[in-house]
Amino acid sequence: MTIDNGTRVAIVTGGSRGIGRAVVRRLAEQGYSVVVGYAGNADEAAAAVKEAVAAGAQALAYRADVADETAVAGMFAEAETRFGGVDAVLNSAGRMYLAPVADLDLDQMDALHRTNIRGTFVVAREAARRVREGGSITLFSTSVVGTYFPTYGAYAASKGAVEALTMVLAREMRGRNINVNTIAPGPTATELFLDGKSDELVARLAKSNPLERLGEPRDIAEVAAFLASPAGHWVNGQVVRANGGMV
C-alpha cells in the first residue's frame, strides 16, 4: 500500500540506536515519515519505530547492511512503496575499531572500512539516484578526523573518505536542488562511544571542549534535522563539526 500524504519522507540508517535513533525521533517530531534502517537488532529498531509513531509520525523498520547494495536498494524501494518517495537520507550507520597502527588487525580494519566507506558510498549512490528534487543527503564523519587521537587511525581514515566525498557529491547534485552535507560529531554519550572507556577518560574527553560536557545524541539530531529541513537547505557541501568547540 502506498501512503502519500504530502509529508516529507526520510531514511535514517543506523536508526535503531545512538545518534541515529535520536535523529529518527527528531525527524518524527518534525512530521517526517521515517524508515528506520538497521543492521541486526530488530527489537531496538521496533522500539525506534514505536517512538516515532508516538511522536505522530508514520514509520517502519527495514533491515539492511549499508554495504550491501541490494539490501539498500530494497530499503529505498520500500520507502517509495509505503510512503511515496524519499526526500531526506541520513546515513548514521557506522562501525568503530580502535588500535595503534602497529597492532592493527587487518580483518577488523577491512570490516570497519566496509561499513564506513563502502557503506557510505552504497547509501550515497542510491540517494543520488532516488532522492526527490529539493531533498537532502546527510552523511556522518567524526571530529577525530581533525584531532588525530592515537589508536583512531583506521576509524579516522574511514571517515576522512566520507568528508572527501561530501563536496564532490554536492556538486554532482547540481540542477536537482539537493543539498549534501556531513556531520562530524565530537565525543557523544552513546553506547558506541562509551564502550571500553574508563570513567577518567570519559571525564577528560568531556572537558575537551569549552562547553565542558559530552554531546548528547539529541544535540547531533538537532543539527541533522536542520540540515535536512528547508531552513538548512542553503548549507551545502559542508562538514559541520558538532562538537562543542573541541579542537
Rank of each mutant, 00 (worst) to 15 (best):
A111S: 11
V123Y: 09
P185I: 01
R21Q: 02
A189Q: 09
S198E: 03
G153S: 08
A231K: 05
Y97N: 11
E133W: 10
R132W: 11
V86K: 00
P100R: 11
Q108V: 11
S33N: 14
P187V: 10
F83I: 01
E78Y: 07
A64S: 04
G153T: 11
T182N: 09
R17T: 10
P230E: 08
R241E: 11
T2G: 12
V101L: 13
V162G: 02
V168M: 09
G135R: 06
P185T: 07
R176K: 14
A64N: 03
D105R: 13
S158R: 07
M96N: 14
A61V: 03
A127M: 10
M1L: 15
V131Q: 03
I183F: 00
L165P: 08
T182C: 10
L169G: 10
G56I: 02
N179K: 08
S136C: 04
Y38R: 04
Y62H: 12
M167S: 15
N179A: 08
A127G: 04
A161G: 14
G6E: 00
Q30L: 15
Y62A: 01
G56C: 03
L106F: 11
A59E: 01
N243I: 08
I178H: 03
R218I: 13
A57E: 03
L211P: 05
P187S: 04
T142H: 02
A228F: 08
F149I: 15
A128Y: 01
R118I: 15
R213G: 00
A203E: 10
A231D: 14
A221W: 05
N91F: 06
K197A: 13
G15C: 07
E222G: 15
E51G: 12
S229V: 09
E191L: 13
A128Q: 09
E172H: 05
G40T: 06
N236C: 08
T115S: 09
V202G: 04
G160F: 01
N243K: 06
L104P: 10
H113K: 09
A170Y: 12
G134H: 08
R118V: 15
T13W: 03
V145F: 06
V168N: 14
